[in-house]
Design a protein around this nucleic acid. Structure first.
Length: 753
DNA sequence: TGGCTCTGCGCC
DNA sequence: AAAGGGCGCAGAGCCA
């Protein structure tokens, strides 16, 4: 029988029973005392009569690393790393680090990761024997040899390192070539320090080799290599994308992939901190070696659902790359105007506020704002976010004056600091552009995520404020018009069809205004009294229905609904609906939510239980959607592996229930994005800018207005889906397109709203 | 000073 | 006891 030794910390003690659940038939001795030397570790192993040690102690990690001069190593980074020691009695001792044991409870995938790391000891036969790591620097003296040997490689992993000063540039490019023949796998790694045009020529030649390329988050590398005219040929594999397709809920960084996929992993990223040139080159090589090893292990294990996901996701990297490299022009004059306006608001409101409270205050400091709340007689409110401040405002007119002022400052500050501070622009030929990145592996649901650009500038493009303060500084290129096409009520339509709730399907796809239909159904008021002749008549009731719909969709509880609506609205709803005068806000909120579920009963009766049982039985949420669109490598839907327990944990349930329509919408938009990319984005009169969850932003040349319709046509994709009620339906989410003004007006993003 | 976590808030 | 989904960025505050 296998025997292990666990060295744990005092804090781990409460979780030891959980730990034992993961052991299966393996015996394990536990040790939770202080250890102060390597010899002590060896003696401990000898006494336990096992050369295999699991360890969650940061102190032991420090012991094993201190000869390398690494200060304060993080256990998180080294979890999964394998260290070795030598014992005269036992021979080779292996130590695998694991995460602190509280993660067995606090993280949904805690047990899964622990079992994975344990299997390095328990089932070593499941792990590829890593080929030897051989590396050298590549320069004029050995380039021809390396080029000719790499030309027969089966696979080449590559990775760039970049520097920021004096301007962004590539410092090195690393490669690991892999030769596979039969059961034997050989690798060789090299790194080119990019310090001359001759070296660039070498990089170009290596990148053009026929072998399939594998990168980790390769879009980053592509963005730089594009500028050096050194784009790699045959980029087919991406380890971050693969990981996302397989286990979207797990980390995807290279350090984690190394620990997860390589038995002998040793976290290497602390190397780069040494400042030593050779370490830097070695570091770069290790990145590519780890990418290659992780990829090979993935090939050996990856299940079919993840392969199918990969066919859905990998192609997106190319339109995303194009959009990232396009960006949106910024009107710098308009920026300074808008910046000054917001600064002015901050100054005047700040003065007003400080006059009222007769004291200086930093409104961005939760500590100071909470003190203010105490002074305003609201010491029960222990948070200083907008929602809670509004509670305080509702209590007294003086509070309201002060808090309104405070919130105005916060709003303006947010605009200035996040969106309007100059310097985020990418400047070329004297023109400024806002760049951004779009990451297909960024979310658990299949939506794209956005961040600032790889070039250390730009903005997250998916959370630009809706008003004109920021969007008016983002403009079409000369001779172009900016336009946005969005899918209307996409998530509500998707929810309705996925759940198979016929009432919701009718409400959302009928001719009538959705929120007014809801208001009528929830509150028993005739539709015509809320909405008639294309106009809202009873706005308060319609808004109420909108909030209830939104809240119920995300399985909101009554308490949170009160907070989002605000007490005032809750009381308003009570009198509007003639509910008993003595009802507490909570009862009112519960009533509102109940009305929703009474109107659309399949959601709670069929959809939520369906999601729960699917997750429990299969651990997967498998989409049944089939899209009628072009350029698909697969017609099978996305599958998400689920570590959570929707039957035991409401947060998990909420997340999985929200996943289903969010994922369906994302898949539809992503397919639309592909169609727009292939059919339109290469035309000179068209520029693909980005997608924002239910819309695509683009530009077209003046005089080519028909392109708006072309985009719209490509977004309206018929979807056939089998709902949780077992019935199959086909539906199409309609799209609406809006363009900025033509040559006589401004060509600003703000015009498309 | 740099690095980390927490809080708050922008979007869909 | 109560629990709104999915993201990323800036500032505050704390620690070494």
């Amino acid at each position: 029988m296998k025997k292990l030794l666990l060295i744990h910390t005092f804090q781990d003690k409460p979780y030891l029973p959980r730990f034992k659940e993961c052991l299966g038939a393996t015996a394990c001795l536990l040790f939770g005392e202080t250890i102060s030397s390597r010899t002590e570790i060896i003696r401990l192993a000898e006494r336990a009569q096992t050369p295999q040690i699991l360890c969650s102690s940061p102190a032991v990690l420090q012991l094993l690393l201190n000869s390398d001069g690494i200060k304060r190593p993080s256990l998180d980074n080294y979890a999964g790393s394998l260290f070795t020691l030598h014992s005269d009695k036992l021979g080779l001792i292996e130590i695998v680090f694991i995460n602190p044991l509280d993660q067995l409870v606090s993280v949904s995938y805690g047990k899964f990761i622990l079992r994975r790391y344990m299997s390095k000891f328990i089932s070593p036969e499941n792990w590829l024997v890593a080929p030897e790591f051989i590396w050298e620097e590549c320069d004029e003296t050995n380039f021809q040899r390396i080029l000719s040997s790499y030309s027969s490689a089966s696979l080449i992993a590559l990775d760039i390192e970049t520097g920021k000063e004096p301007q962004i540039h590539i410092t090195e490019v690393g490669y690991t070539a892999v030769w596979i023949s039969g059961d034997s796998i050989k690798t060789h790694s090299c790194v080119i320090q990019l310090d001359s045009l001759a070296k660039l020529a070498m990089i170009r030649q290596l990148n053009l080799l026929p072998a399939a390329k594998v990168m980790q988050n390769g879009k980053y590398d592509l963005s730089y290599l594009s500028r050096y005219n050194a784009v790699p040929y045959n980029y087919l594999w991406d380890t971050a994308t693969l990981m996302h397709c397989w286990y979207s809920e797990l980390p995807k960084d290279l350090g984690f992939l190394g620990a997860f996929f390589s038995r002998n992993a040793m976290y290497w990223k602390d190397l780069s901190k040494s400042g030593n040139r050779r370490d830097q080159l070695l570091y770069n090589c290790k990145d590519t070696y780890t990418t290659a090893i992780a990829f090979l292990q993935m090939l050996a294990e990856i299940p079919s659902y993840a392969k199918n996901n990969y066919l859905l996701e990998f192609p997106l990297l190319f339109p995303c790359h194009m959009a990232e490299m396009t960006g949106i022009a910024r009107d710098m004059d308009e920026l300074s105007i808008s910046y000054a306006e917001q600064k002015q608001i901050i100054a005047s409101e700040q003065e007003k506020l400080e006059r009222m409270i007769a004291s200086p205050i930093n409104v961005s400091s939760p500590v100071q704002v909470k003190k203010l709340l105490v002074i305003l007689g609201c010491k029960d409110i222990d948070s200083s976010n907008e929602k809670d401040l509004l509670k305080a405002a509702y209590r007294h007119p003086i509070n309201a004056r002060i808090i309104t002022c405070l919130l105005n400052i916060r709003k303006a500050r947010k605009l200035v600091s996040t969106y309007l501070t100059p310097g985020k622009e990418f400047t070329r030929h004297g023109k400024q552009r806002i760049l951004y990145s779009l990451n297909p592996h960024g979310t658990d649901t299949g939506r794209l995520a956005s961040k600032e650009h790889h070039f250390w500038c730009g903005l997250q493009v998916q959370n630009i404020p809706r008003g004109s303060a920021v969007k008016r500084t983002l403009i079409a290129d000369s001779g172009f018009r900016i336009a946005e096409c969005d899918l209307e009520q996409a998530e509500s339509r998707d929810t309705a069809n996925v759940a198979g709730d016929s009432a919701l399907i009718d409400a959302v796809s009928g001719e009538r205004d959705f929120h007014s239909v809801n208001a009528s159904a929830f509150f028993g008021v005739p539709y015509e009294a809320i909405y008639a002749n294309g106009k809202t008549i009873d706005k308060p009731l319609r808004d109420l229905a909108k909030k209830v719909n939104h809240g119920a969709n995300y399985l909101m509880g009554a308490g949170v609904l009160i907070d989002t609506m605000g007490l005032e609205k809750v009381f308003e709803a009570k009198s509007l609906l003639k509910l008993p005068r003595l009802w507490l806000p909570k009862q009112v909120a519960e009533y509102l939510l109940a009305q929703f579920h009474k109107t659309y009963p399949s959601l709670s009766k069929v959809f939520y239980p369906g999601v729960t049982s699917e997750v429990i039985k299969t651990r997967l949420l498998q989409s049944t959607a089939v899209h009628n669109s072009k350029y698909q490598a697969t017609t099978k839907g996305w599958a998400r592996y689920c570590f959570g327990h929707p039957d035991k944990n409401k947060r998990d349930l909420n997340g999985y229930v929200a996943h289903v329509p969010q994922n369906l919408n994302a898949m539809t938009l992503n397919k639309a994005f592909m169609q727009v990319f292939y059919d339109l984005a290469f035309k000179p009169e068209f520029k693909l800018l980005c997608q924002i969850h239910d819309s695509i932003l683009f530009q077209f040349k003046e005089g080519h207005e028909y392109l708006m319709q072309e985009v719209k046509d490509r977004m309206e994709i018929p979807v056939t889906i089998t709902g949780y009620d077992g019935k199959t339906r086909t539906f199409t989410v309609p799209a609406a397109v809006k363009a900025g003004k033509d040559r006589h007006g401004a060509h600003r993003w703000s015009e498309t709203e």
